[in-house]
Design a protein around this nucleic acid. Structure first.
Lengths: 261, 261
DNA sequence: GAAACCAACTGGCTTGAGCCACTAATGTAA
DNA sequence: TTACATTAGTGGCTCAAGCCAGTTGGTTTC
């Protein structure tokens, strides 16, 4: 542009306008899930803006979770993945008895996905204070720390880190084995005298840390659900704490409960 | 730089490096919550990068929810707000009997904040299908739609949109009044023959929409918790559905429940 | 003392240029 | 047919420059 007019300049490009344009087009269905958006360079030309401005608009949509960019291929409207739902009944004995797969596996299969669980580490550790507090332990009391990674169709969906007092698990499969046997982890706890009767679920949501974004391959604009689960027996003794971090675009929680018990 | 060396160029600036530098500094405590980070221009100089590169690094931290930028003032490490926790007992009759403020108000007061609830609209509408389904109604059956905005210290924290069958609420305060009387909304429902006995809570997390980000004044990098709550009476009839959208940086959910009832 | 002004500093946003890395389709040689 | 280059197109990232719009604090003026 020439510099003849020093008055209030008209912005030829405005990344908000471009972003809103794309949002509207997606909402209208001009671009369906999976469709490719115009290239950054094409958008810039169309809106008479610099490529960087178009780029900023796309960054906006990415952070909103509307689209994903693939290096060398293009920008695509995000497909809405089916959700896996988890609730209190995944801890029920009926679930344990009838289901070989465990709660994650059965949810995955119900969604037509191939489940897979990885147990990269089992170790005896001194736990962080928030774990000790939830377990009602002194801060220097050792626990077992079991890390679980849950995959659906090869994609990591959630991480669960389980802690239980060493005094309880010592000498059992809980202390050193990935395989919990047919009853699963809660079947094993029950055989040790800790039948899961109550649970406490503390639920928060936040953006993933750097490490989580990499490990869970969380795309831009997708938060994680940060869930602290405590298993409590009939005598109101907590015996197990698990911290789940789940991709919020694949996961929902679904609880039904009585108001007063 | 000169073009004499066509080999692999050394990037003087790299927004990831700058971002990690700042993350580390914040983690170390070099910058405390509320502290001001160096200006974009200062960061650029320090890292021998262009201002845009430093700017990109800061954008990264903003999206992670670590810092907030204030136009004309600077970039500040985000203060961790105290969390308001909500669980199933907020629906208990004991809560109703002893507490004039309601569950939101009492949580706010417990956190040292001044609560305030706004009811901008009460109307008779034909509900969206997901509401009808949750209420077990035909899709053309009218309901009352009550919109509630919850504030703490003047800041909007959550929005709740409640739906209930028009056939139930017609002629009562539920149909047209913001004031529910001493027993609150569930007291009123109980007097109409619908005592809340079970609840169902469907919990998801996502980034806020444009409108929500404005209405709730959600800063960058903060997701929202999207909660569908259904109130169910002793005969297992759903009589009320509320969709809460809450700032995830101020809100956590805390449920304890028996595994089997 | 109060109000108005001003200068310096901050982030917000855009431009246009350039190089790189990755992908997919095409062509070519074995 | 297979394997390997080539090439065009894509997003990733950086640079240097500039203008705008808030904020803050000091100075001047009344």
């Amino acid at each position: 542009m020439t510099t003849t007019q020093p008055g209030p300049e008209f912005h030829r490009g405005d990344f908000r306008a471009i972003a809103q344009d794309l949002r509207d087009a997606i909402a209208r269905g001009d671009y369906q899930p999976g469709d490719k958006l115009p290239s950054e360079r094409a958008l810039a030309t169309k809106h008479q803006a610099a490529r960087n401005t178009a780029r900023e608009a796309i960054a906006q949509l990415r952070h909103e979770g509307l689209v994903t960019a693939e290096h060398g291929r293009g920008v695509f409207v995000r497909e809405k993945p089916r959700w896996m739902r988890f609730g209190r009944h995944r801890y029920s004995s009926a679930m344990r008895a009838t289901n070989e797969l465990g709660p994650f596996g059965s949810e995955a299969v119900a969604q037509g996905k191939r489940p897979h669980v990885d147990v990269p580490s089992i170790a005896r550790v001194t736990p962080p204070p928030d774990v000790s507090d939830r377990l009602g332990l002194e801060h220097n009391t050792d626990v077992v720390r079991r890390e679980n990674w849950y995959f659906a169709d090869g994609d990591p969906i959630q991480i669960g880190v389980t802690y239980a007092p060493w005094a309880i698990v010592e000498g059992t499969a809980l202390a050193d084995s990935a395989d919990m046997g047919p009853g699963g982890i809660y079947g094993l706890f029950e055989s040790l005298g800790y039948a899961i009767t109550y649970i406490r679920e503390e639920i928060a949501a936040r953006m993933p840390t750097n490490a989580e974004a990499e490990g869970l391959q969380v795309p831009d604009g997708v938060p994680v659900i940060d869930l602290w689960h405590t298993g409590i027996d009939a005598n109101h003794r907590p015996f197990e704490v698990t911290n789940f971090v789940m991709r919020a675009d694949h996961t929902a929680l679904d609880y039904d409960m009585p108001i007063e018990d």
